[in-house]
Design a protein around this nucleic acid. Sequence first.
DNA 1: ACATAGACCTGTTGGC
DNA 2: TGCCAACAGGTCTATG
Length: 295
Amino acid sequence: MPELPEVETVRRGLQPVLEGATIARVEARRPDLRFPFPEKFSQRLTGKTITALGRRAKYLTMNLEGGPVLICHLGMSGSFRIETADGSDMPGVFQHDRSKSSNHDHVVFHVVSPAGARSRVIFNDPRRFGFMLFADGPVVHPMLAGLGVEPTGNTLDGTLLASLMKGRRSPLKAALLDQRLIAGLGNIYVSEALWRASLSPLREAGTIAKPGKKAQAQSEHLAQAIRSVISDAIAAGGSSLRDYMQTDGSLGYFQHAFAVYDREGEACSKPGCSGHIERIVQSGRSTFYCRTCQR
DNA sequence: ACATAGACCTGTTGGC
DNA sequence: TGCCAACAGGTCTATG
């Protein structure tokens, strides 16, 4: 489920429960997810206080007092949910129907707030493409070392985007999915951003970085489209397609704002455009776009 | 450098 | 209704 907006939504949901809390116990209910759990996984977490819950691209980072940083990736189907230890209601905390998914609860963090309130933070991941790793001290974990610029804030402007795309022969879509260039975009938001910028996913990436005003306007438009689609999606609590996503069990609602993703055959909603949305496959993954207005 | 395909997993969906 | 193929928000690896 998670691209950057979904991971950020998860982070915001977990933050009030985790930041400042102490980990009383951790259960890893199987030896691995995508990778084996690190050596002494639960021992290294037990007794630690969580000083900060952060995010880099699609990775969650949990800073532990005097200890390592826990890095979590949600893969395709990972999610977190919060439960109170005694199962009773807690204001704002949704009790999930566990009948369907509890067999994929792979990690349980038992935490205690500074005020003494006990909660469980449960990681569920049917497909097990997610993973958890430690990064020690100030050393950036190799997994995060090569990541590109965040598409949040105002860092990614037309000039920077053009420099990233310059000379690239690959399709624009592939370049935008490359986490070494821009970190956090995934299959949904790339399609959405390209539609907003009226640019074809098939176009050679380097063409928006050619000399001249036309390419300059295109790279500016695309940078703006990427920033706006990401910030709109975060504001909507992300997109919920097949799973619950937010930690309290509620759904994100950005999927209702999709212009192209999973809208094959529908009329293009761009004012004045008479085209329709097509689905094509690029490097094995679906791309949705309107060939009439995206050039 | 880059493109593509396959791999990792399970669950859901759509067509017959 | 039932079965099976196709597909799903990611990313690492191998191969050309």
